Simulated assay, not measured.
Amino acid sequence: METTTIKIQNLKCHGCANTIVTQLSKLNDISEVTVNNDTDEVSFNYISDTDKLSAIKKLSDLGYPIEGEANSLPKKAKSFVSCAIGRVNN
Rank of each mutant, 00 (worst) to 15 (best):
M1T: 11
E2M: 11
T4C: 15
T5C: 09
I6S: 14
K7H: 12
I8G: 03
L11D: 03
K12G: 13
C13R: 08
C13H: 06
H14K: 10
H14Y: 00
G15I: 04
G15Y: 02
A17P: 04
N18I: 00
T19Q: 09
T19H: 02
I20T: 01
V21S: 00
V21W: 00
K26Y: 00
K26G: 03
K26Q: 09
K26R: 10
K26I: 01
L27V: 06
N28H: 05
D29S: 06
D29I: 00
S31L: 03
E32A: 07
T34M: 03
T34D: 05
V35T: 01
N36W: 00
N36T: 04
D38H: 05
D40C: 08
E41Q: 15
S43R: 03
F44T: 04
N45L: 11
N45R: 09
Y46H: 08
S48G: 07
S48T: 15
D49P: 05
D49T: 04
T50V: 12
D51F: 05
K52H: 07
K52S: 07
L53E: 14
S54N: 15
A55H: 03
I56V: 13
K57H: 07
K58M: 14
D61F: 03
G63Q: 04
G63A: 04
Y64P: 15
E69S: 14
A70S: 15
S72Q: 06
L73F: 10
L73P: 12
A77E: 12
A77R: 09
S79G: 09
S79E: 08
V81N: 08
C83M: 11
C83T: 06
I85G: 11
I85F: 10
R87F: 08
V88Q: 13
N90R: 12
